[in-house]
Design a protein around this nucleic acid. Sequence first.
DNA 1: GCGACAG
DNA 2: ATCTTGTCGC
Length: 232
Amino acid sequence: MPANRFVAIMTAMPLLDRLRREQRHLASLVTEEDAGGAAERIAGVDVAYDADRMYTAAVCVDAITLAVVEVAMATSAVSFPYIPTYLARREFPGIEAAVRRLSRKPDVLMVDGHGRLHPARFGVACDVGVRLDIPTIGVAKHPLAGRAMKPSGGDKATIPIALGGDTRGYAWVPPGAARPIFVSIGHRISLATALDLVRRTTQSRYPAPLALADRASKEMKRNEKREKGGKR
DNA sequence: GCGACAG
DNA sequence: ATCTTGTCGC
């Protein structure tokens, strides 16, 4: 069955109607203002999958040197399928577990996925930010919603993305990169600060906290698979 | 109304 | 996201 057909069926379910209403409600609780004070510790969280198991890694780095400060991980069972615009329903449990294991809350958390650049203005980054009450930034590799505008300043690498009449995010092409990454507000941060922090922590194509979390989650998956194989 | 759709 | 060979380019 084609994925889009599956989505069509799921979209008609009462459960998703309820989840959509919940998203719209929680979206009204998102704060688009900076908490105040420069971020000293920035963390990134990402998830890797192996069938019905999910491996989540949260990596905290020093905002200036980008040196790793702490790594926390969590493994759990997948409890919801991937359905576009409902990503949080699938990833939140693992993300919460990993982030709570950090000995100290990061000043800002980068989440792999969109924030306000979402149909209900409540992507996974907003979901994580509101539920855990921490500043978050949404960073995605592919677009989901919104329309690309013309670069405003002289910066051709930063394209504003409009959604519902407002600039809700940016498509930014990192130096040397061929494709852009999409940045939007998650919670308790301004769009300007979100973009600034992403720029300042990006070395290659993705912000260091997320690049490290991606590597750590995949590494954890490999190790667990090797252990399983060894027990057989 | 139709199509597209983060990870 | 994950699967997965060959192939292009530094």
